[in-house]
Amino acid sequence: MMSGFSRLRAGGLLAGAALFATAACGAGAAETTPDGKPEVVAAFYPLQWLSEQVGGSDAQVSGLTPPGVEPHDVELGIQQVTELKNATLAVYVKGIQPAVDEAVEPDTSFDAATAVATVPAGEHAEEGEEEHGHEELPYDPHLWLDPSRLATVATKLGERLATADPAHAQGYKERATKTAAALGALDQEFTKGLTTCTSRTLVTAHEAFGYLADRYQLKQVGITLDPETEPSPARLSEVAKLAKAEGVTTIFTEALVSPKVAEVLASQVGAKTAVLDPLESKPSGDYLSAMRDNLKTLQTALGCTA
């Protein structure tokens, strides 16, 4: 996630870029490719994957966040602001990337969080943490970690693309239905795989897994809300006490975030660490395979039986 300085810098770049883009391009109609395909711009990986599945060969999909980069750390240049403003459809989640929130056009954007029932934001912000990211939102924005909710987003995305490109409406709707079915099957795998576990407590480096916990009756305990914020000694002590009381054997960390805090906590409670991917950036496979890897990790850590 970005520091306060980085966010101010991003905001400054955005404002300048937006002004330049407006002056250079005018209000601008929605862009299409040379062969007439609608341009779909997705803010970060899970939404890019979903847009590619639903858009298929009828749409040109691009992503704003490069592989291996946290979405929160992306700064928008002039070209990216112009792409967002002129896109046939910009797909994003409000609160993940403030610069994107400011750049999208209301009539040609789709906030995936509006398609589902959201869960409340984490409750354990350290003092000043609300200044550094999406923690000021009343809801947790990581909705893609619940396949059933993402299936709902897929259906809504199909409808939005069908409206934007009526000539290919049937294709969008059919692919949305197929994608929703694949996500529904994944949801069933998680439901079955996490039914019988000796523990149902997830201790995570930061509170990104609220939707997963909500869907599969797990309890998330985040060390922090922001992975770049050092937890206070009091918070570490509180989580350590809870982890010991509930027999937690694994502290979850993330591939793109330093495991230091999780390792310190694990050493305090005699646990090990494991990577649980929040899928904010492109994994080695795709969304479905990465989520299945997460399921295997959870089953091992929580002592789930088949």
Rank of each mutant, 00 (worst) to 15 (best):
P46A: 11
K178P: 05
G128N: 08
T177P: 05
L47Y: 14
G303E: 06
E70K: 11
V91I: 07
A176T: 02
E102A: 15
L298R: 14
G26R: 11
K272T: 15
T250C: 04
A255D: 08
V269L: 11
A154C: 04
V257G: 00
L186N: 07
A180L: 07
T179L: 07
G56C: 01
T179K: 00
H134A: 14
G26D: 07
E263V: 11
G303T: 00
A290Y: 07
G12P: 05
C197N: 04
D58G: 06
T65I: 09
A125V: 12
L47D: 11
D187I: 03
A208F: 01
K282G: 08
M1P: 15
F252I: 12
E75I: 02
E246A: 07
M2G: 14
E105K: 08
A185N: 00
G36A: 06
G247M: 12
V104K: 10
P46W: 07
T224C: 02
L84A: 01
Q97D: 02
P259H: 09
T118Q: 07
G77C: 00
K219M: 01
E105N: 02
F5T: 13
G210L: 02
A208R: 09
S289T: 15
E230H: 02
A243C: 08
T273A: 13
T196E: 14
E75D: 13
T204V: 15
E131F: 06
V91E: 09
L13A: 14
A18Q: 12
L143K: 09
D111N: 15
A243P: 01
A169E: 02
V41M: 10
A43F: 09
L161H: 02
H168K: 12
H206M: 01
A169Y: 01
Q220R: 06
R215A: 15
A306Q: 13
A15W: 05
P233W: 04
S281D: 01
A306H: 13
K260A: 10
P231L: 10
V153T: 11
S258D: 15
S232R: 08
A266P: 07
T88G: 12
G210P: 11
G68Y: 14
A243E: 00
L143N: 03
L50N: 08
D277I: 03
T155A: 13
L8Q: 14
P283R: 04
V203E: 03
D101F: 07
A181F: 05
G4E: 11
G285Q: 07
S109W: 04
A87Y: 11
P71T: 07
L157M: 00
S289P: 11
S3H: 08
A240K: 02
D101W: 10
E280P: 03
E75S: 14
Q217A: 14
S148I: 01
T273S: 03
V239E: 11
Q53R: 12
V264S: 15
A180I: 07
A262V: 04
T253Q: 06
A167R: 14
G128P: 10
T88Q: 11
L202C: 03
H72A: 10
V61G: 00
D277M: 06
K178W: 05
V74Y: 01
E230I: 06
D140Q: 06
L143C: 11
E126Y: 06
Y92I: 02
E254Y: 04
H124F: 11
F209I: 03
R215P: 04
P141S: 01
A23I: 06
S289M: 08
S6K: 12
S148D: 13
A271V: 08
L157F: 11
T196W: 10
L295G: 09
E174R: 14
T155I: 13
